[in-house]
């Protein structure tokens, strides 16, 4: 199976990287760029008996390994057979 997981800084947490990109966009003359938030995308190939098991595995992986749950949220975007 192939799955995609995204990890983003929590909505209300300061994202210095996103802020730096937004500023740089302004420096390039794109004053219209008002806010940028930067996260991560994981493409994972896995071997799981069924979709339910895959979801459970991805949730655990995302919470314990891929994200820092204190300051980040994660989302399993897709799972394809």
């Amino acid at each position: 199976m192939k799955a995609v997981v995204t990890v983003m800084p929590k909505q209300e947490v300061l994202d210095p990287q996103g802020k730096a990109i937004q500023r740089a966009a302004g420096a390039l003359g794109h004053a219209g760029v008002q806010d940028v938030r930067q996260g991560k995308r994981f493409e994972i190939t896995l071997d799981a008996a069924d979709r339910e098991k895959a979801e459970a595995l991805l949730d655990e992986l995302a919470e314990k390994l891929l994200s820092n749950p204190v300051i980040e949220d994660f989302q399993v975007e897709s799972i394809e057979a």
Partner: peptide, 12 residues
């Protein structure tokens, strides 16, 4: 989840 008690700093 919208209310972090930990702050993120920005040294720059």
């Amino acid at each position: 989840s919208k209310r972090p008690t930990v702050q993120v700093g920005d040294p720059f």
